[in-house]
Design a protein around this nucleic acid. Structure first.
Lengths: 223, 223, 223, 223
DNA sequence: AATGAATGAGCTTTCATTCAT
DNA sequence: GATGAATGAAAGCTCATTCAT
């Protein structure tokens, strides 16, 4: 089959069907803006079309359906999130310092990024797209906890902490890192995240409570 | 059943238009099942019609619109929740006992009732129905925290606790009461609530951490 | 069958089904207000219910359907109109005086009464209710013309007018009586009828034109 | 048929969204048949769909709503009417000839075109769509009268007519041009327009009456 | 006879998806 | 490959009519 003029104009032929990563990213960028602003159902494919600057047909070349597009978007958000999480807890002199860095990083992630709106939308469609939601929730937030749990377990081994149930301890520490601010943001109780100082204050308080409870007691070790 | 002449003359209708509480409840029950199962947008008024066993027109006698119906449903959930919350913290011998009862009640409420699915749906439409969501979130979950905060402040006055920031402390305590189980349920990480024993274990751990940190220190009082 | 308490209360039994003329009139009065204000389709039976102060069921005792109610209303308007028309042209000394009285009466009827809104609504449903419309239009407006035509024919017989085509002459005279004001009101070009003086002026001008043309010419009769 | 590279690159669509005049006309044609047959309210968008041979969605690409579609239809009727009106009164040797041509053109327009059914429907929705109706009525029928009024005024200046009130004279002449046939058609008293001969007869009679009354009197001029 | 809550067909309108160009 | 006009199922909602009381 000959190459048509149209193909030349469009610069077609360099990629397999729906495989141009730039265009794909462009569509996802538009979709992100639309979905974050309107939610899943209220966002129409025409909105995405407009925001992404591509035609309806093109979207359906790259994505099979609205749900597929949304799934790909969530997957991308998750990847970015996961990548960022890896850089935490790398090296720290003391357990306390490690936990502090972790708590701050976690709090900023949750409160700074597009996490909150993404989570809201996902929860709204959880019953209809259980697999998609599970892929997101069972990975990203869980990853965070597993990383921390390993860290706490290691500290326990080294005698720097005294923790029986590392799973519970990790969950407790995570929840205290944000101490209600996650819910506050999720429920839109506060329109923007608290400032850095407030985050630090909350983290510090939680950290001290955690250390007070889980640090090995002197009299126990001496006895 | 006897009827007075007045009643007969007043017409057969026992209630003003759209005011029969039984039928209203019947519609809300059907709507609840549908909304909880499908979410807000995916649930159609025809679904509600079928599930509630009433006709389309009847629904629109009792509720102005789909959004109004959903709002009424949320309002009812909230009321039931609020009513239950009032019965906590009534009387307890010690602070620790009071906090324990509170934490258990809170955990059971959050995890037992229809709270989680309701919250999911609300979050999915938060951008479109900010007022409705605010009415729910700013009241029920906030009520819980305010009650607890007052309780903690009173305990501080009596010297039974040593808490500078009662707001922070209340949020910390609440988040620790469920220690991740709220998120786990919200994100559908676990399909049902943990059993009573597990809840008690988590509550107990959180309580001890809280008391360890916020109980007045002996050396402080003696000094 | 025994008489129920309800029947006693309502004073029922005095009339056959749907035969209480007072209630019937009450319904028609309400229907008239509603239909005149909203038109046929935009008016709902609930509107009529509210305006007439009777229940839905009652309306359907007196009238078989919405269309039937509207038909009855139109019939009543027509009757009132016809009755009024009869009182014109009773006695007058001269043809000119007779025609003047006729033109004034006609103009006032058309422009004063509920004729205009009634006609508007009827025209809007003419294709759906041809019989109803024909009964109205083929009677009331036609009656007017026939009366006038007879009068003109009589005048011609008496030599007071010289009219070959009395049908045409009657139509010409009628249209000139309002000289555009009928259209102006029908098309809502003017929101209210012109004042009495203007009506008189228009009628007088038309009358003179008519007489100038149709009065027997002196030279003809003498020839 | 050749296509330039630019056309191909610009995409397959030959027209902007909802701008294909052929399709637009096709929809309007279908809508016209439906509205003329059923009236505004009784005509459903599904009827239009069927009659126009396009899908529901397509109609809503070209027109925002049912009312908008109807408005566009009315606008088109008006345009055709207005365009035709402009060609009257262009040149005529005598006033009488000019008036005759005008009257014939006017009568044919009113009675031949879709004017009558259009007017019927508009009157039926006048209360609900006052602006739309005003745009139609205040323009087309008024245009006709203004044209004629100017013509009569010019004739008065030239001494070919003796008319004090040109506004009244124009209205009188117009009403006499159809002498009841406008009403007869509007009220569906006659199912089709009268034949050409009858129209000519009526026009001629009206014209003579008008000239007899408004032509300058010899004795006046001589005096 | 009178009531008005209930019905459900049918309305206008939207939007994910397709396909001729 | 890209386009966007066209599709038509399905949505939320209304309202003439019925019927148990």
């Amino acid at each position: 089959m000959e190459m048509t003029t149209a193909q030349i104009c469009a610069g077609a032929g360099r990629f397999a069907a729906g495989a141009d990563p730039v265009k794909r990213g462009q569509i996802l960028d538009g979709a992100k803006r639309v979905f974050m602003k309107l939610g899943y159902d209220a966002a129409s494919m025409n909105d995405v079309t407009r925001e992404a600057g591509v035609s309806k047909g093109t979207i359906y070349v790259y994505f099979q359906s609205k749900e597929d597009l949304f799934g790909a978007l969530v997957e991308r958000e998750k990847s970015e999130f996961d990548a960022a999480i890896q850089q935490i807890l790398s090296e720290s002199k003391t357990v306390e310092e490690g936990l502090r860095r972790y708590a701050l990083a976690h709090a900023h992630f949750i409160l700074d990024t597009e996490m909150i709106p993404t989570i809201r939308i996902l929860l709204g469609v959880l019953d209809r797209m259980p697999t998609l939601c599970q892929r997101f929730f069972a990975s990203s937030p869980t990853n965070i906890k597993l990383l921390l749990q390993d860290y706490i377990a290691a500290a326990h081994e080294k005698g720097e902490l005294s923790v029986e149930d590392t799973d519970l301890a990790a969950r407790q520490f995570i929840d205290m890192s944000t101490a209600g601010y996650f819910k506050k943001r999720l429920f839109n109780d506060i329109p923007v995240r608290p400032d850095d100082k407030e985050i630090e204050r909350v983290v510090e308080s939680g950290l001290r409570m955690f250390m007070t409870f889980y640090a090995p007691r002197k009299d126990e070790t001496s006895a």
